[in-house]
Design a protein around this nucleic acid. Structure first.
Length: 601
DNA sequence: TCGTGACGCACC
DNA sequence: AAACGGTGCGTCACGA
């Protein structure tokens, strides 16, 4: 046994690294006692983040508030078997972002997510329910380091963080790469690994009582949502490798052709450099009107769009703009998306998204791995990379105008409620009230949800400011309940510095941006509508067919012969009533690929 | 060479 | 009176 003593404040703790059969027996004796005494911390060190595509487990750690045990499972199948046995047996496991570890354990230790999640508690979830703010928004964030600093011990936080930086330095590499190459017996690595479950247990003890009482019921709910998301992630989405490779090749050719144009005709070396493009344009005598916040030339899509014409004169600014646009498009599509897909497949040719079910201040989810929330929707060719399983077809079910229906529910506004009850055209309704086009009415509706004002409406809709102002006033007059909710939410935000959502989530609001409170209420309640829909789907047995959850939409792969019925069932399970408003859903059968839903004619 | 901020851009 | 909410991620440019 190798023991590493450590002090958290004045308290002595120990990290113990298992080396032989005798040590293992000591671990088992400890574990048997610890798991009957309370929550046991669980954590894994891995070679990297890709549990489905190449990375594997190096160590599994267990711990209570005073002792952390490191089982270097990489060294022997016996150690892995014992780790798996205790992961199966421990009645209550805690970890920070434990969903990550459970995914690894599911894939590489053979203990399923279905088995582990119901016995697991995630300190990230508690942290988010207590204070969802990230560092960039003025919060402490949700890193183990920051939480340790605030709730456990500052010196420990500094040293634990410092140890990784030191490790990376020692191995002359970066922090992300050191995990796979560090010696499994390195004392600093072992100490870091063994401290993690100790800190998770201590954090759990501190955080659990701090969840606001209005949010208490969200604790089991968020754990369930997290489990479902990890099950969907585990399913993965089948990639059409041949199509994707062909697309990658074509995008590369497109990019090279357009970039060569920019270079040869205009001397623009890098189309992604706004500086380069700006000088290219200015060399042609074009004056760039906009400046960025830091005073540089603003060369963005809006500027380039304004330059592009149908049949550009060779050597003109329009010609340069078109070449830059095309090169940027092709390069982004290939490097951000298609090549990522091709490099991210597992042995069965599937890509696994990584869903953080509780991400934004409003609890909105985020998805990486498959950046499903940001793929182009105006064009089908990228989404076409993802296909249904053999014999299946892709279906999608989304909520119809989810956020506006939620707004109708939260505000109780009679006009808006009636509109949805009758399936009326809300955008037209707003437009008629203000005497403008439907397009402007639609923008006004969305802007209301986002908290925008007349200036933005004028900007977006391309109408004069006084008209925009009139539309905003007409909106308030048409939907007095919304105006009232907006007012009371701002008052709530100013008074308390935070708002409480329909589902009992406490969300801080920047006092200078009290108007944002209404959006938080709408966005957050909408997220919970989707999350509850997910729970319904899970209870109805649909989880194995699910592929992605994108804000107000669920994508699934269903057997062709059952797609019609299945998609209607999914829509039925997702649909719900919120304060008397029908949050209605719309099923659609796409075809053999995700892109088939986006093919326009 | 690495980490980070600025910027731009994809989506809901 | 006026106020655009949220996310991820790529490249460039720059400073340690």
């Amino acid at each position: 046994m190798r023991d590493y003593p450590y002090k958290i404040g004045s308290e002595q703790v120990t990290v113990r690294v298992v080396e032989n059969a005798e040590d293992l027996a000591a671990f088992e004796e400890w574990a048997t006692r610890a798991m009957s005494a309370g929550a046991v911390g669980v954590d894994c060190e891995t070679t990297g983040l890709e549990m489905y595509a190449g990375d594997t487990l190096r160590t599994v750690q267990f711990g209570d508030a005073y002792t952390g045990w490191v089982l270097p499972v990489e060294k022997s199948p016996r150690l892995a078997a014992v780790a798996a046995e205790y992961v199966r047996r421990i009645p209550l496991m805690v970890g920070h972002n434990i969903g990550f570890d459970l995914r690894f354990i599911d894939r590489h230790l053979g203990v399923s997510l279905e088995d582990t999640w119901p016995r697991s508690r995630d300190t990230y979830i508690y942290s988010h329910l207590i204070d969802p703010l990230e560092v960039k928004d003025g919060g402490i964030g949700h890193s183990l380091e920051a939480l340790t600093r605030k709730y456990v011990d500052a010196k420990t936080a500094d040293e634990v963080k410092g140890s990784i930086t030191g490790l990376a330095k020692e191995y002359k590499t970066t922090k992300d790469k050191v995990w796979s190459i560090v010696d499994i017996d390195h004392p600093g690595y072992n100490l870091y690994a063994g401290m993690d479950p100790i800190l998770a247990v201590r954090l759990f003890q501190k955080l659990e009582p701090k969840v606001p009482s209005v949010s208490a019921h969200l604790v089991p709910y968020e754990h369930l949502v997290a489990m479902i998301c990890s099950l969907i992630d585990r399913n993965g989405f089948l990639l059409d490798q041949e199509y994707s490779q062909g697309l990658s090749d074509k995008l590369r050719a497109d990019e090279e052709y357009a970039a060569a144009h920019a270079m040869l005709w205009f001397g623009v070396e890098s189309v992604n450099s706004t500086d380069d493009v700006a000088s290219g344009l200015m060399d042609l005598g074009f004056r760039i009107p906009g400046r960025t916040a830091t005073g540089k030339y603003k060369v963005d899509k809006a500027l380039l769009d304004s330059l592009v014409v149908d049949d550009p004169e060779i050597g003109s600014p329009a010609h340069l703009a078109a070449a830059v646009q095309e090169a940027k498009r092709a390069s982004k599509w290939r490097s951000s998306w298609v090549d990522k897909f091709l490099n991210g497949t597992d042995a069965e040719g599937r890509i696994h998204p990584y869903t953080n079910p509780l991400r934004a201040r409003t609890a909105r989810m985020s998805i990486t791995g498959i950046p499903a929330q940001t793929l182009p929707s105006g064009d089908w060719i990228v989404r076409r990379c993802f296909i249904a399983d053999p014999g299946q077809t892709i279906v999608s079910v989304d909520y119809k105008a989810q956020e506006l229906r939620v707004l109708a529910a939260l505000s109780g506004d009679p006009t808006m409620r009636a509109a949805f009850a009758e399936d009326a055209d809300l955008h037209q309704l707003t437009a008629d009230a203000a005497g403008v086009d439907r397009k402007v009415g639609k923008m006004a509706n969305f802007l209301q949800v986002y908290g925008g004002g007349a200036a933005k409406l004028a900007d977006n809709a391309g109408v004069p400011f006084p008209v925009a102002k009139r539309v905003i006033q007409a909106f308030a007059a048409k939907y007095p309940g919304v105006a009232e909710l907006s007012k009371s939410t701002q008052a709530e935000a100013k008074r308390n510095g935070r708002i409480v959502t329909a589902t009992g989530r406490v969300i801080p609001v920047d006092p200078d941006r009290a108007y944002a409170g209404l959006n938080y209420k709408i966005q957050s309640a909408s997220r919970d509508v989707t999350a509850r829909g997910l729970i319904n789907l899970h209870n109805a047995g649909f989880t194995p067919y699910m592929r992605l959850v994108v804000h107000d939409e669920v994508v699934a792969s269903l057997p062709i012969e059952h797609a019609e019925y299945g998609s209607r069932e999914i829509a039925r399970h997702m649909r719900m009533d919120l304060r008397g408003v029908d949050i209605d859903t719309d099923p659609e059968i796409y075809g053999m690929s995700w892109g088939h839903g986006y093919i326009k004619d």
